[in-house]
Design a protein around this nucleic acid. Structure first.
Lengths: 120, 120
DNA sequence: AATACATATGAACAAATATTCATATGTTGG
DNA sequence: CCAACATATGAATATTTGTTCATATGTATT
């Protein structure tokens, strides 16, 4: 095991045995980084509103702009972020592009978060 | 129903019937704001690593600092954010303060996110 | 082909935020 | 009481990020 006592931590009391176990079980740093990058996408009001709306019905960019009272440009930017993270998928029909949720994890995460809020 | 056609949206083709239904089902804006604020807390590498570590075992500030090779100060700042959002809870034992997860939603959200990443 | 409209994208600006530094609080042991 | 240590917190800085503006792309209609 690598030395957990780095120069950045000047503590003296650490629980070496527990730490060793936790360190062994903790996913790789780059996996947790990816996870944070994913969850970061959920941490914005506009994107949460978009995702929730899409969980109710497939919508085009204009629909979302009208619903959220924002410019289509702003919506489009956010949709690109959501699409890059595989959270929504586009369906083109002529000029119009319809968006829908890519998988069920989205609603699961939104619901878990919603439950947490409604518990206090 | 309020007019969904705001000045910010210059679109002409919107699906009024669908929009009306979605608008009625969509949670209040301030609820979705709270949800975004909650999920924002998950969108940071340091906090994700802290949360995942705490899902494995209760740990004190120094433990986390040693594990993540960061200063105790930086950890403490993040723990305050997590505590304010009711995601972790402290337990004082003398000088040492141990932190653990506040409820099961945390691991659920982390796991759902993790599954999503491991699917592509 | 040419116009109209839905959507996408790049650059710029303003706002939010994570870490560091300095310092404060709180607890234990001498 | 005092010194030592774990933790907390406020201010400052550097980075990140959401929206706007200007412009580009792509499709349908005349």
């Amino acid at each position: 095991m690598t030395d957990l006592h780095s120069p950045d931590c000047n503590c003296t009391i650490i629980h070496a045995d527990v730490l060793e176990q936790v360190d062994a079980q903790l996913p790789d740093e780059d996996l947790l980084f990816q996870l944070a990058e994913l969850l970061k996408v959920f941490g914005d009001t506009t994107r949460v509103r978009i995702l929730w709306a899409l969980s109710l019905h497939e919508l085009c960019v204009c629909d979302l702009a009208a619903l959220l009272k924002m410019t289509a440009t702003a919506i489009s930017h956010q949709l690109r972020i959501l699409k890059n993270m595989q959270l929504v998928k586009p369906r083109r029909a002529g000029k119009v592009v319809y968006y829908s949720l890519a998988d069920s994890h989205v609603t699961q995460i939104l619901n878990q978060g919603f439950e947490h809020i409604n518990e206090e």
